[in-house]
Write a protein that binds this DNA or RNA. Structure first.
Length: 586
RNA sequence: GCGCCCGUAGCUCAGUAGGAUAGAGCACCAGAUUCCUAAUCUGGGGGUCGCAGGUUCGAAUCCUGCCGGGCGCGCCA
């Protein structure tokens, strides 16, 4: 249950009743009315701005309207007290029994706690990673992979029907370069050439292509080395793309990311999708032949004005109209991407989310323009840009990998610190903020390391339950049994404060899903862990506050419900992040 | 030159569809260990939310203009 929406619904009903009684005008616009936590805990549990929002249209003073509303809110079940504060806030404190019910709800729901019907089953397509299949994934790709996957999980939890999609850019000149590189490696494997630095000029130098070359050599000998033969080159391209996709899929598997759909750019083009999309746009007068101005303030030595097919992106908010064809007559990346997004829309996705690297930021406007044009306003594209990951160790930049060519691979980092650490750290910043990833710090066991801090809270709660098993029967410790514990024995403010944080998980899921911001889950879990550690330490100072009190079974059972609930909510949050909760710290 | 992102405590960053006296961690200072893991916790000092206007009951948040940093600007994707 999203408790804020729950009380907002009650509030809106009260506003309707007052209107029916003609105490206030009818038909007031309540869309901006919110129910949320107050700035400070001491002000109460929930607050509403309704009186301030509605005062003007109701022609009343905010505090007078607040008094009227507060009188009715006071009569609601679970509302213990109301108070009018500041310019017209109505603060409410809820009955402790309400919070204890939330704990029972958590125990009953288990890891599904926080699942929501918010998305109403709407189809959402999350496209991420989508790198050229020319080599292994590096750390930057890893960030996009984690952000995309966690965002997808978050949306699923919020009730959307999500498809995880990878767009394989297998149609450009880069895959031909890949094929040439692999052919050279095959020649090397056969002892026909020696690949020094000079010979590798213009080719992908990474050593990951050696096994591909060896495979080519062992399967075909020297038969498939001619890259000047167009037909053979296409064979090599296909061969290499398959190899690279295997490599990429393996990297993704190690990270725990699985896609529902791989869409091939090449196949899309061959199926005529680009022609169809451009025909669609041309039919609406959105394509014309024109000459672009050279960009100002940028070196323009090789600029030659030439007429070309342009999309009227400016009609949809972009800065200039965008080219659709290269000088060699082939489609630009943009043209095929228009077709691709049109294809996604045709497959039923009105909401599309693309996760890109920040270096593609200049591309967002034109793509959004294209989506608007090609879906005639019915489709929506949100682009999440992921900033760079700065990999350090003890503050020093990490050396580049020789094996991979010019970058540190994702798999190397995962091998070093573990999958769960990588996934968690990637979500400790907003996607559009730079991320410092320190290989030493992320495995430290300290408060500074959020992965450890959150995992430790989970492990601690598991530890308590293990100890409890010495006194209680297994059946007494199951979530459903603990839900029936005498929860009214939970009376300490710190205990109730912990429940309140847990109870805000459903609303966090919805707001984070709405904002497309999975990093909020990481911050939430950090807060929840802090509350738990805080309560734990109360037991250090005062033995009566420990979870397990010898001889007091009912009290202990109630507190174990709290402990189990914490573990459940942490596990529920980590699941969204794709991180496995640990039972104990080593 | 133009566009996008960012600018919040000494440092690294949150800030939930415009809400109340702007938060957390680190660092600094002062404390807690007969304990279910002190790998943690408690308290304290620390801010012109880059600058200047505007919108309104109310702005870190929205609008405009500057300053500073990052990314990008046909024939790469």
């Amino acid at each position: 249950m999203n408790l804020f929406n729950h009380f907002r619904d009650r509030l809106i009903a009260i506003i309707g009743e007052l209107a029916a009684e003609e105490s206030i005008p009818s038909g007031l616009d309540t869309t901006r009315v919110t129910v949320e936590p107050p700035r400070e805990e001491s002000l109460g549990d929930i607050t509403t701005n309704a009186a301030m929002i509605l005062a003007k249209p109701a022609a009343m003073k905010p505090r007078d309207l607040a008094a009227l509303l507060a009188g009715r809110l006071d009569g609601l079940d679970s509302v213990a007290a109301t108070e009018i504060a500041g310019p017209g806030f109505i603060n409410m404190r809820l009955e402790n029994s309400f919070w204890r019910q939330r704990l029972a709800e958590i125990l009953t729901a288990g890891p599904a706690y926080g699942d929501s019907g918010f998305g109403r089953g709407c189809k959402v397509n999350v496209e991420f990673v989508s790198t050229n299949p020319t080599g292994p994934l590096h750390v930057g790709h890893g960030r996009g992979a984690v952000v995309g996957d966690a965002l997808a999980s978050l949306l699923e939890k919020a009730g959307f029907d999500v498809t995880r999609e990878y767009y394989v850019n297998d149609a450009g000149a880069q895959v031909e370069m890949l094929a040439r590189s692999a052919a050279a490696r095959a020649g090397e494997a056969l002892g026909m050439v020696e690949l020094d630095e000079e010979a590798l000029q213009g080719l992908y130098p990474g050593e990951y292509l050696k096994p591909v070359g060896e495979k080519l050599a062992s399967q075909f000998g020297a038969q498939r080395l001619n890259v000047d033969d167009a037909e053979n080159l296409q064979f090599l391209v296909r061969f290499c793309i398959d190899e690279m996709l295997d490599l990429i899929r393996a990297d993704l598997a190690v990270l725990g990311v699985e896609f529902d759909v791989f869409t091939s750019e090449k196949e899309l083009v061959e199926a005529g999708a680009v022609d169809a999309a451009l025909k669609f746009l041309a039919g609406r007068g959105l394509i014309y032949t024109g000459v672009l101005e050279p960009p100002k303030g940028k070196k323009t030595d090789d600029w030659e004005p030439r007429p070309q097919a342009l999309f009227r992106a400016t009609e949809f908010g972009d800065d200039v109209d965008r080219p659709l064809k290269k000088s060699d007559g082939s489609w630009t990346y943009f043209a095929t991407d228009i077709a691709y997004h049109m294809d996604k829309f045709r497959r039923g996705f009105e909401t599309m989310i693309d996760v890109w690297g920040a270096d593609h930021g200049g591309y967002v406007k034109r793509m959004r323009a294209a989506v608007e044009a090609v879906t005639e306003g019915a489709g929506e594209l949100d682009v999440k840009l992921c900033q760079m990951v700065k990999l350090t160790e003890g503050g020093q930049p990490v050396k580049m990998s020789k094996r991979a060519g010019a970058f540190v691979t994702l798999s190397e980092v995962i091998e070093r610190v573990g999958r769960d650490v990588v996934r968690f750290i990637m979500l400790t910043r907003k996607n559009d903020a730079h991320l410092d990833f320190d290989l030493a710090k992320v495995t430290e066991q300290s408060r500074e390391n959020p992965v450890f801090y959150v995992q430790y809270a989970h492990a601690r709660s598991c530890s308590v339950l293990r100890h409890a098993a010495e006194v209680f029967l297994p059946g007494e410790l199951s979530p459903s049994a603990l839900a029936r514990a005498e929860l009214d024995r939970l009376t300490d403010p710190a205990e109730l404060a912990l429940i309140k944080v847990m109870a805000s998980w459903p609303s966090l899921v919805e707001s984070a899903a709405l904002a497309h911001e999975p990093h909020r889950v990481a911050f939430y879990l950090n807060d929840l862990a802090a509350r738990f550690h805080m309560l734990w330490n109360k037991g250090n100072e005062n033995a009566d506050m420990r979870f397990l009190i010898p001889g007091k079974r009912a009290l202990s059972a109630a507190r174990l419900a709290l402990v189990r609930g914490t573990a459940i909510v942490i596990a529920s949050g980590l699941k969204v992040m794709g991180v496995i909760p640990v039972q104990e710290m080593k």
